[in-house]
């Protein structure tokens, strides 16, 4: 039976190698490997052999951190600005035109004195 004969394959290979060939093989090959090499392009690596998440997303994480810091700074700036605006509105209420007119009238300050004090005050 031809089929049977072909399936009776032997593990013993008919090919031989010089004695000790495999003992020194990797060392001999490494002696021939040039000093300069290059790095695998693992940016497209599948999940099984990919780099850890931090290495793969390093640029993204950096950008996200920068955006977060900018957002916090912007929020802080808006809060401070809003506080100043609120203070200004309080001042406007405290020193309304009517209040100033009354103040000037009661304190006997005429326009000349007022403008003089404003001019020197600058």
């Amino acid at each position: 039976m031809k089929d049977v004969r072909l399936k009776l394959k032997t593990n013993r290979t008919p090919f031989k190698v010089p004695q000790g060939y495999f003992d020194n093989l990797s060392g001999n090959i490494m002696e021939l490997i040039p000093q300069e090499g290059c790095i695998p392009d693992v940016s497209l690596v599948s999940n099984k052999v990919s780099r850890p998440l931090y290495f793969r997303r390093r640029r993204f994480i950096g950008m996200a951190a920068s955006v977060s810091v900018l957002a916090v700074l912007f929020g802080l700036a808006m809060y401070v600005s809003d506080s100043f605006n609120k203070s200004d509105s309080h001042a406007a209420v405290a020193f309304s035109d009517e209040f100033i007119d009354n103040y000037l009238e009661e304190s006997m300050v005429d326009e000349y004195l007022m403008y003089s004090s404003l001019t020197y005050g600058e």
């Binding site: 040039p34 090499g37 695998p40 392009d41 693992v42």
Partner: peptide, 16 residues
């Protein structure tokens, strides 16, 4: 030997 030298010099073609 040629196989391993080529592999070393073209490691960047290994995409994983």
């Amino acid at each position: 030997q040629n196989t391993f030298i080529k592999a070393w010099l073209n490691l960047d073609s290994f995409k994983g």
